[in-house]
């Protein structure tokens, strides 16, 4: 039995059709296209980061941009994360729109003072007299055998600091549209890409359409439970939903896309509609972002519609291990989502 709460309709964001206005691009290509579009259309935009020039970026994201836009605007830096982010803060204060690449999101720990104490707070501390429009792109997540210092999912660190916006694109189209919106934004935006998604393909609009920050996407509509998932877990949740459907269980899959600002309304209404919530993240469970989503649901009108406890499926509270079988065991996989969803629906 499905009911829908009155309220904002879910932002329907089914993948757009492939067509004249869409090409199939990889997620990495989509990010590059957004960077190129921003560099082309706004002279204030410049990129800086380690090995983003002729090397093309550690994951090949910046590719040939240095040849198209020059070394001044696609600026290689020394290995100096704190300095890089600090320089971006200063350039942003002075009217530029820097886009920083931090080679692995784990390395943001090196830059955390400039992220959390400077970029995030300057607008507020200065009484609104200045703002810090910068984007910090960083790939996160496990699955590449890179072990504990190159595989974390750190979104909760950033989401916990007022003043930062936090974006986690899960598709090539969103990687482009959200990045363009992030570059437009007058605030510091932490843009967390996922290493496993870089080679995934999907339809991407050829224009410069923005995907607004703060608008969730409903990837799939079902009746028995609502799965809220972020980053690489979105596609795992979608795959799980396909398998669940063969077993007669239909699931809604909600991708928040941005954690700050968060589209509370869509999450609440989609959970209320099915009465069951399964929250899936790659990050460790304790104090993870899905704990916030669970609290949001419990605090909301959706609480009265729940017919089962809110369930979280998270990474284990462990550093990401090296060995492939250990690494897989440390974070939710499709069968885990299927099993947990089945338990949730069959038990309640």
């Amino acid at each position: 039995m499905t009911t829908t709460l009155p309220g904002p309709a879910a932002a329907a964001a089914q993948p757009p059709e492939d067509g004249p206005a869409h090409r199939t691009l990889t997620y990495a290509e989509a990010v590059r296209e957004a960077l190129a579009e921003a560099l082309r259309s706004d002279p204030r935009v410049f990129l800086l980061g380690e090995d983003i020039g002729v090397y093309g970026g550690a994951f090949g994201v910046t590719g040939d941009l240095v040849h198209r836009f020059g070394e001044d605007r696609v600026r290689d830096t020394p290995i100096s994360e704190l300095g890089i982010v600090g320089a971006a803060v200063g350039a942003a204060l002075a009217g530029m729109r820097p886009v920083v690449e931090i080679q692995f999101s784990d390395f943001t720990a090196q830059a955390m003072d400039q992220i959390a104490n400077q970029a995030a707070k300057i607008h507020f501390m200065l009484g609104g007299a200045a703002s810090v429009p910068l984007v910090l792109r960083a790939p996160g997540g496990s699955g590449t055998g890179a072990a504990a210092q190159h595989s974390q999912s750190l979104e909760a660190w950033f989401a916990h600091v007022p003043g930062l916006k936090v974006v986690m694109p899960a598709t090539p189209a969103d990687a482009k549209g959200l990045l363009l919106a992030a570059i437009d934004d007058p605030n510091p935006v932490v843009f967390l890409e996922h290493k496993l998604l870089y080679k995934r393909s999907g339809p991407v609009p050829s224009g410069a359409d923005r995907v607004p920050l703060g608008q969730a996407a409903v990837r799939r509509q079902g009746q028995d439970l609502t799965i809220v998932a972020t980053g690489v877990m979105v596609s795992r949740a979608e795959e799980a939903a396909r398998q669940l459907a063969e077993d007669g269980i239909t699931a809604t899959v909600v991708d928040p896309r941005t954690l700050v600002p968060l589209d509370d309304a869509t999450i609440i209404s989609e959970v209320a509609a099915t009465g069951r919530a399964l929250l899936v993240q790659e990050a460790p469970r304790t104090c993870g972002y899905m704990a916030e989503i669970a609290a949001l649901i419990a605090d909301s009108d959706a609480f009265g519609r729940l017919r089962a406890p809110i369930r979280r499926l998270s990474g284990l509270d462990v550093p990401i291990p090296y060995a492939p079988q250990l690494e897989r065991a440390a974070v939710p996989q499709v069968p885990d989502i299927v099993a947990e969803a089945t338990r949730l629906v069959r038990s309640w």
């Binding site: 410049f46 001044d72 605007r73 704190l82 300095g83 982010v85 600090g86 320089a87 971006a88 803060v89 200063g90 350039a91 942003a92 204060l93 002075a94 009217g95 530029m96 820097p98 400039q114 400077q118």
Partner: peptide, 13 residues
């Protein structure tokens, strides 16, 4: 580093 960045902005413009 913020000073370096403001100076970089001046240079880029």
């Amino acid at each position: 580093p913020i000073a370096a960045g403001a100076a970089l902005a001046s240079r880029l413009r």
